[in-house]
């Protein structure tokens, strides 16, 4: 067995081969990548959450049929977002999202998945011992809180509507948007007041 070639060099080789054949255009790739580095990120999901916190009618629409409701306030199209379901975290019930079979994730509202979400330890363990895993990630839930793990095993994508933190009653929708984190929208954290 010859020595394994580093992924960086194999990536470079593949790009050369495809470019020489006219199958990819590096400039088109640049544009595609830039979109995912700048536009497609958790700010979209945060806008949705903040709107749901300030507008009860919007919240009801979002929980009933999330995909069109998301498009009212944020870009919600593209890959990995054809059918999104939103579930609400409450003091009694805590939802947390995983994809055990790959790393399926609601790209239009959260961007590309963070490393811990793609990590075998998270994928393997959160469906087996979620309370322990959440504690390792810094979220200690009371014993009386019911945990529901959402394993995204098809093209359905899950987004968590976190609890609005106490003490944020006076904040504007824009200020609330800035508080909402990616981790809270996956269900491995709560949103904190500023």
């Amino acid at each position: 067995m010859t020595e394994r070639i580093p992924a960086s060099l194999r990536t470079e080789a593949l790009e050369q081969l495809l470019t020489e054949r006219g199958l990819v255009d590096p400039a088109v790739m640049d544009t595609f990548i830039a979109n995912y580095e700048t536009n497609v990120g958790p700010l979209n999901g945060a806008r949705v959450v903040a709107r749901a916190w300030v507008d009860p009618e919007y919240r009801a629409r979002l929980l009933a049929d999330a995909t069109p409701a998301i498009k009212e306030v944020a870009w919600g199209g593209g890959a990995n977002g054809e059918h999104i379901v939103v579930v609400e975290n409450t003091p009694e019930v805590h939802n947390v999202v995983v994809c055990t079979l790959c790393s399926c994730y609601p790209w239009p509202v959260l961007g590309l998945p963070p490393s811990w979400y793609k990590d075998p330890a998270y994928r393997a363990r959160v469906v087996r011992e979620p309370r322990t895993v959440l504690a390792e990630m810094g979220l200690e839930l009371g014993e009386d809180v019911e945990i529901v793990v959402r394993d995204s095993s098809s093209e359905v994508r899950w987004l968590v509507l976190p609890e609005r933190p106490a003490g944020t009653e006076g904040l504007s929708e824009e200020e609330l948007t800035a508080l909402v984190t990616r981790d809270a929208m996956v269900g491995v954290a709560k949103v904190s007041a500023p």
């Binding site: 055990t100 490393s115 330890a121 393997a124 895993v133 990630m137 990616r182 954290a189």
Partner: peptide, 17 residues
């Protein structure tokens, strides 16, 4: 690819916001 419930992966990595 089917990782559910498999063991030996160690602790989860803490999120970096």
């Amino acid at each position: 690819a089917d990782m559910s419930g498999t063991s030996g992966w160690g602790p989860v990595s803490p999120p970096d916001p």
